[in-house]
Simulated scan of single mutants.
Amino acid sequence: MGPKQSKSDQPQLLSEPWRKINWQDKQSALKYVQDYKPHIEGQQLRILLHGPPGAGKSSFINSVKSVLRQRMCNLALVDNTSGDSFTQKFTTYKIQKGNPDSFYPFVFNDIMGLDASSEVLVDDVKLALKGHVKNGYVFNPRAKLSEGDQFYNKNPSSNDKVHVLVCVVPADTATVAQDETMKRLREIRLEARDLGIPQVAIITKIDKVCPELRDDLKNVYKTKALKQKMEQFSVDMGIPMNCIFPVKNYHEEIDLNDDTDLMILSTLKYLINFGEDFINFKHQSEQSDTYA
């Protein structure tokens, strides 16, 4: 027998990617998003991002806007120095399409980061899922939003309600199943399940924990360590693997990169599809109840 191969000597990349991306087809993915129009007239698709502080929720929103505007943008404020949540308000972000009065038919909601002590915030997120939280609400860590508050929406429309829930977790903490933060995320997931809202997870900062991706993002679905992290996160949170997407946000670059763009567009495409399916299902159910 030959000498035993050390762990560092073992290949870190799979011979074939376990998920396919056409890295040469960014324009098709971009056009798919640009052409998206909800089947229901006047409908707006709402995507709510939640996760621990510093996970990259605001950075993902900025990255999406940058890709769609084809230039670097900073719509959502991001902090690079504090371990605490920089987002304090419930904020709705629209993305301009064409002229300043035209927007894409989907919006993102950013919320304060969830940590081990975020029990009250979890209650606010549950209200947000049902459309009861108005834009601009400042999260209070000591008391949840109440019906008498000016930021409580008593009669939410379909556009106010969340159509896709996205859990954003950095790759370096995506496998801490016993962490209190993960328990909070799981509690929100169960609430969304009861409401029938589709759920997706985004794993960020993949280049920080996988050196193979710093040189070539095309290795994303060949990297063993990242696949293992995604599989463990799937077990811990119960989110299926086909609803978990690794993403590299823009955070230090000043110019766009086609590979980064395509990963963001690929993820956004699935968010749109899942949300559109949910909206149509709810609409069909309501129509059936009306004529029953």
Score class of each variant (00 low, 15 high):
residue 172 D to L: 13
residue 289 D to A: 09
residue 93 Y to D: 09
residue 233 F to E: 14
residue 152 Y to L: 12
residue 220 V to Q: 01
residue 103 F to P: 01
residue 250 Y to D: 00
residue 47 I to H: 05
residue 250 Y to H: 00
residue 266 S to R: 10
residue 141 P to E: 09
residue 54 G to P: 14
residue 224 K to H: 04
residue 56 G to A: 07
residue 57 K to C: 13
residue 34 Q to Y: 15
residue 132 H to D: 00
residue 83 G to D: 12
residue 125 V to Y: 15
residue 191 E to Q: 12
residue 57 K to T: 08
residue 154 K to W: 13
residue 260 T to Q: 11
residue 231 E to C: 10
residue 233 F to N: 09
residue 90 F to Q: 00
residue 168 V to R: 07
residue 47 I to E: 05
residue 205 K to D: 00
residue 124 D to G: 10
residue 244 I to Q: 07
residue 164 V to I: 08
residue 32 Y to S: 02
residue 46 R to T: 14
residue 172 D to A: 12
residue 250 Y to N: 03
residue 184 R to K: 13
residue 88 Q to L: 13
residue 226 L to M: 01
residue 167 C to Q: 08
residue 93 Y to K: 09
residue 254 I to V: 11
residue 204 T to K: 01
residue 44 Q to I: 08
residue 7 K to R: 09
residue 246 P to W: 14
residue 240 P to S: 11
residue 28 S to I: 08
residue 81 T to M: 13
residue 281 F to V: 04
residue 184 R to L: 08
residue 65 K to Y: 04
residue 235 V to L: 11
residue 90 F to M: 03
residue 173 T to E: 14
residue 161 K to H: 03
residue 181 T to R: 05
residue 16 E to R: 09
residue 274 F to W: 11
residue 72 M to K: 12
residue 15 S to E: 15
residue 283 H to V: 00
residue 93 Y to T: 14
residue 12 Q to T: 10
residue 123 D to R: 06
residue 27 Q to D: 06
residue 155 N to K: 02
residue 54 G to T: 06
residue 217 L to S: 04
residue 115 D to T: 00
residue 69 R to H: 09
residue 110 D to T: 07
residue 89 K to G: 00
residue 34 Q to A: 15
residue 250 Y to A: 00
residue 55 A to G: 13
residue 181 T to D: 05
residue 50 H to S: 02
residue 83 G to H: 10
residue 30 L to E: 08
residue 35 D to Q: 06
residue 20 K to F: 14
residue 57 K to W: 15
residue 194 D to W: 01
residue 206 I to H: 08
residue 3 P to T: 08
residue 198 P to W: 02
residue 11 P to C: 06
residue 135 N to S: 10
residue 123 D to F: 04
residue 149 D to T: 08
residue 58 S to N: 12
residue 266 S to W: 01
residue 176 V to E: 01
residue 214 R to T: 07
residue 288 S to M: 11
residue 17 P to C: 01
residue 13 L to V: 09
residue 133 V to C: 11
residue 43 Q to C: 12
residue 197 I to Y: 12
residue 4 K to S: 12
residue 67 V to P: 05
residue 42 G to V: 10
residue 242 N to W: 03
residue 150 Q to V: 07
residue 117 S to D: 07
residue 227 K to G: 15
residue 230 M to N: 04
residue 108 F to Y: 12
residue 130 K to I: 01
residue 106 F to L: 02
residue 10 Q to I: 11
residue 193 R to C: 15
residue 80 N to G: 00
residue 160 D to Q: 04
residue 259 D to H: 04
residue 237 M to Y: 07
residue 29 A to K: 15
residue 282 K to E: 14
residue 137 Y to I: 05
residue 256 L to V: 01
residue 157 S to K: 07
residue 204 T to Y: 01
residue 147 E to T: 07
residue 290 T to F: 07
